[in-house]
Simulated assay, not measured.
Amino acid sequence: MANLHLTRPRPDVLLVTLDRPDRLNALDHGLVEDLHRVLDDLRADDECRVVVLTGAGRGFCSGLDLTEPFPEDATAGLEFPRSSMRWQERIAELVLKLSRLRQTVIAAVNGPAYGGGFALALASDIRVASDSAQFCTQFIKLGLGGCDIGVSYTLPRIVGAGQAFDLILTARTVDAPEALRLGLVSRVSEGSVVDDALAIAETLCGYGKFGLESTKQVLWANLDAPGLDAALQVENRSQILASTSGELRAAAAAFADRRKP
């Protein structure tokens, strides 16, 4: 794909690199469509278990490519505002697809993650940052509303409502150390952020196949749980299903033999 570089560091891990480094991997029509194709392919990929998402060059993703904010190819030949709504919805669908993937998604944020790039990182399951990573919602700076591409949903659930209101309304830039303090990322890499993300992926691939898939599904489902009882209902069913895979018995046998499952 012209705008993405795909590699398999191991058969069950896909490294997806946004590949428009001259534009800080800004989201144009071609990149958005390539991302959709990869995410659609991943839904049917039963071998891949973890996806690592990063950017080429010195940035993760700078957001919408403002040289062509409303690309003609994305308008479906419709009149305004229907044409722009199609493009808006197409970009926003990316965050839904990321959250709904069976695979765990690790965002290896190697530089600026602004606007839509920030939204892609927030829709990932785990975020790790390089020491040069920067985060900014940016939208309100562009004469738009500050809530776009899912950030008004994902950001408060990650850092809390108070911090999210601050970050979205002021559109201030957060560096890697502050992102770690806020809980926006789970770790800051001292070396290669991609290598650290791949190390996490290797750990995850050592766990049961159904267990890893169901854990992601339960975590996302219970973000919207109305209460503890509803959350427990989802957890209970997932655990019983997981126990039928045979992986629990294998893990118990390994434990008894003092060996790694």
Rank of each mutant, 00 (worst) to 15 (best):
V218C: 07
T7E: 15
S130I: 04
N25W: 08
G246W: 12
V185N: 09
V194T: 14
S124H: 12
A107L: 10
S245L: 05
P177F: 09
A201F: 02
S243Y: 13
V109C: 08
L204E: 04
P71N: 01
S130N: 03
T104E: 08
L182P: 01
V52N: 11
T173S: 13
L39D: 04
E178L: 15
Y153M: 02
P226G: 10
Y114M: 11
E247Q: 08
G162K: 15
L219T: 02
R237F: 03
E33G: 01
M1P: 09
A221V: 00
S130Q: 07
A129V: 04
D12L: 07
E72W: 00
Q138T: 14
R259G: 01
E79S: 11
L223C: 06
P69G: 03
L223D: 05
N236K: 14
G63S: 06
L167Y: 10
Q217K: 14
C48F: 06
A113V: 14
P9N: 13
A221T: 11
D224A: 13
L24G: 01
E213I: 12
L219A: 13
G150L: 12
A161H: 12
A256R: 04
F60G: 09
F255N: 00
F135R: 02
Q103A: 07
R259M: 00
F60D: 00
Q103D: 05
A230G: 00
S192K: 11
C61Y: 04
A161E: 15
R43D: 06
I149G: 00
Y114K: 10
L18P: 06
E79F: 02
A225L: 06
V188P: 04
A26N: 00
G111C: 05
D12S: 13
A129C: 11
P156Q: 07
A2W: 10
Q239T: 14
L27D: 02
L14M: 14
G116P: 01
C136T: 11
I149C: 02
